[in-house]
Design a protein around this nucleic acid. Structure first.
Lengths: 235, 235
DNA sequence: ATTGCAGTATTGTTCAACAATCCAACGATG
DNA sequence: CATCGTTGGATTGTTGAACAATACTGCAAT
């Protein structure tokens, strides 16, 4: 350990070069499929078919399944197989409770957040507006998710960030249960804009109030659509 | 579907009869071992030895590993094996950021929480004091964890509850990194008592302030002990 | 309409094998 | 003497096949 090791010490941190296993790669792929709706909620994932299609053994595939079950994106039912999660009305209420508990305090504490994090919120707003301009409704939904992810990031905790991503991914599943990207995201863009403006101005309380209304409205809209759907499906 | 089905409707809910797989059972066992410190942080878990000891195949064991890796209790290092997580100083800071973000808002919103949840907080306080009376320091630590779990439960979200359990389990690992159960839990019991009193009285703001101090003190204590430990370990 | 009972398909789990990789020890090199 | 290349052994990564256990379907019997 000589003095010439200064070079090494100054090198950037070990930016996660870790090689990934097959199980993780498959899990990443399936996660993307689920979030993008290519795998519809409730669909059963056959071990044999999937393992043949993606050329991995059943054992490896099952490792991937375990990972995604813990993320609540897949549901493992003993001796029945794994299914794409299919959130119900109760899940929606719980998801919004979780989001309220996470996002509101994050926004209220944004005074202590470094500037780049606030700018990330603004970037998500603009991405959403750009997507809207191109009438790309699905991308608009993604931008909206990134917006809320950015809000959660104001808490500045890696664990909160991950939890937030998980909750948002699950929320996205809710949208897939009732395919209607346009009407559900459309009215919210101006809201996002206002929230970011208040944040950038340092007025965290106003931002929090706007966000609170946003969440209430969104939850209301989703739950009513849900109960409506369940009612018609009952008969 | 005749009217005589009333009997069935009145039956208790399907209280989780789901049979569990081997992988889940093994995961439950390992989780308990890790939390209780029977498996020390940093220890490597040999696939061959464990699979032989608990009479499961390597594949099944690996499924269990995947579950616990997603909970951050185990760490999977490619081609090297799985290790009991070994949180460092940065993890401690992040854990406390997460706890602040979760527990403080939960306490502040406790006005809307049903009474049984507040009583659960009180029960945890008493369990801690009982353990202290018997000089059972480890059980005291468990009671303290339950106390904070009960605080998180005030948010009334199943997902928050689960995340909270995860964060607390990880926090418990931190204590194992530096085995010192007595001094670290001792001064906090009165604090817990005060927090519960304020909560029961409906004074959520006071409760939140007490909790905030508690967290600050606890984090301070842990991080200093940590940096001290890392300093001595460096040489 | 409900129950009982095959037969079939799928998952649960194990096992054995091999490839890929890490790691420690050794010696070679400057 | 510190560093580097090599080699051999140990462990993980992944596969494929096998069998057991369970759920589901359809049909017969009541």
């Amino acid at each position: 350990m000589t003095a010439t090791d200064d070079h090494i010490d100054r090198l950037p941190a070990p930016a996660m070069v870790h090689a990934t296993s097959q199980a993780e790669r498959v899990a990443d792929m399936l996660r993307a499929f689920v979030i993008d709706g290519e795998l519809a909620p409730g669909v059963r994932l056959s071990e044999e078919k999937l393992s043949r299609k993606y050329e991995v053994s059943r054992n490896t595939l099952r490792e991937a399944f375990r990972l995604l079950s813990r993320e609540r994106l897949l549901v493992h039912r003993m001796h029945r197989g794994v299914f794409v999660a299919h959130p119900d009305g109760e899940d929606v209420r719980d998801l919004f409770k979780a989001r309220r508990a996470l996002e509101l305090p994050a926004v209220r504490g944004a005074a202590r957040a470094p500037e780049p994090l606030v700018r990330a919120v603004g970037a998500a707003v603009e991405a959403g507006e750009a997507a809207r301009a191109e009438a790309d409704w699905w991308r608009m939904g993604s931008a909206n998710m990134h917006f809320h992810e950015a809000l959660g990031a104001l808490a500045q905790s890696a664990r909160i960030n991950e939890f937030m991503r998980q909750v948002l991914a699950e929320t996205r599943l809710v949208f897939h249960v009732m395919a209607a990207p346009r009407e559900f995201h459309d009215p919210y863009l101006p809201w996002n804009r206002r929230i970011h403006l208040a944040l950038a101005a340092g007025d965290t309380e106003t931002a929090a109030e706007e966000l609170s209304e946003y969440l209430a409205t969104s939850e209301e809209q989703l739950t009513t659509a849900f109960t409506e759907m369940e009612r018609t499906a009952k008969n």
